[in-house]
Amino acid sequence: MGNRVVPAILIALLVILHAQLWFGRGSVPTVARMTEQLHAQNQQNQQALLANNRLAAEVRDLKEGLEMVEEKARLELGMVKTNEIYVQIAK
């Protein structure tokens, strides 16, 4: 009976280890799911970085020159300069 205890304990430990591998905190499905979440978060971060860079460039343009202010006023507010005739062509 003594020679069957050690293999039984080793088999039990192997079963516990295998169960942890498939169902525990660091299991294969959990790691795969977290890897997908990490990939999605990295994509969101890249998009946010592009948006931040675009906004930073726009702020820099607004601080440095009046051309951007004039362009925004013309496009968004429909403003015209003095002695200028505004013509709108409908398509």
Rank of each mutant, 00 (worst) to 15 (best):
V80F: 09
A57T: 01
A32P: 00
Q41Y: 14
L38C: 06
M1P: 02
L66Q: 02
L38H: 06
S27V: 00
M79W: 13
A48S: 15
L55W: 12
L50W: 11
A73S: 09
R33L: 15
S27C: 11
E67K: 03
E64A: 15
V28E: 09
A40S: 08
R54Q: 13
R74Q: 05
L13E: 03
G26Y: 13
I85R: 03
E84L: 07
F23W: 02
G78K: 03
I9A: 15
K72C: 08
K91E: 01
K91R: 12
R25T: 00
V15N: 02
L17W: 10
R60G: 11
K72Q: 07
K63M: 11
V59C: 12
V6T: 08
E36N: 08
V6E: 10
L77K: 03
M34F: 14
V31T: 03
A73D: 04
V15P: 02
L77R: 03
A51G: 01
V15Q: 02
A8M: 15
P7G: 11
A12F: 14
Q41M: 15
A19Q: 06
A48T: 00
T35A: 14
N53A: 09
A57G: 09
N3Y: 10
N52I: 10
L49Y: 09
R60H: 13
P7W: 14
L14R: 01
A56C: 09
G65V: 00
E70R: 07
A48C: 09
D61N: 12
L49A: 14
L10K: 06
M79Y: 10
A51R: 04
L50K: 05
A8T: 01
L21H: 06
G65L: 08
V6M: 09
L62S: 07
P7S: 14
V28N: 04
A8V: 01
R74L: 08
A51N: 07
L55D: 06
Q47I: 01
E76N: 07
M68L: 12
N45D: 15
E71M: 13
N53Y: 05
V31A: 14
I9K: 05
V59I: 14
